[in-house]
Amino acid sequence: GPIKTIIFSQWTRMLDLFEYSLNQYCIQYRRLDGSMSLAARDRAVREFNTDPEVTVMLMSLKAGNLGLNMVAACHVILLDLWWNPTTEDQAIDRAHRIGQTRPVTVSRITIKDTVEDRILALQEEKRKMVASAFGEDRVGVSATRLTADDLRYLFLGS
């Protein structure tokens, strides 16, 4: 099948901006965000998975991070970062899951010298923490909650 791409953002306004560019380049896409009805979401996913002309799916990180099977896509682009890396991983797993036969590429687009550098560092810390003590409840909780120290780090630096 054709190479298809899922594009994630946590802001629907960012998806709006992206739609404008896709229209300019005449690239066919579907969209999935929390404001849509269940029927509209189903239709968007089905058309993305089956229509060869539709090569891009614009998804909000929150609406599209669990359950959906979108192995028609083998390319994932994240337009912005989420401080908890597991949320991003769940989003990427829409394409990288059982049934996928092609290698999946993931691109994270970040802007240098902004708070995003620190979000990347924070993600790395969370990954290390989960990896070092997998299965322990207290660590599990601290890995999924943004602490005061985390916030201080994000906005003020170390």
């Binding site: 054709p2 190479i3 791409t5 560019s21 682009i77």
Partner: peptide
């Protein structure tokens, strides 16, 4: 925005190789 430009470049490069 620079992010949209970067994402479109990735998208279009895949489209060409396709």
């Amino acid at each position: 925005s620079s992010k949209i430009k970067a994402a479109l470049e990735i998208l279009l490069s895949h489209r060409e190789s396709n």
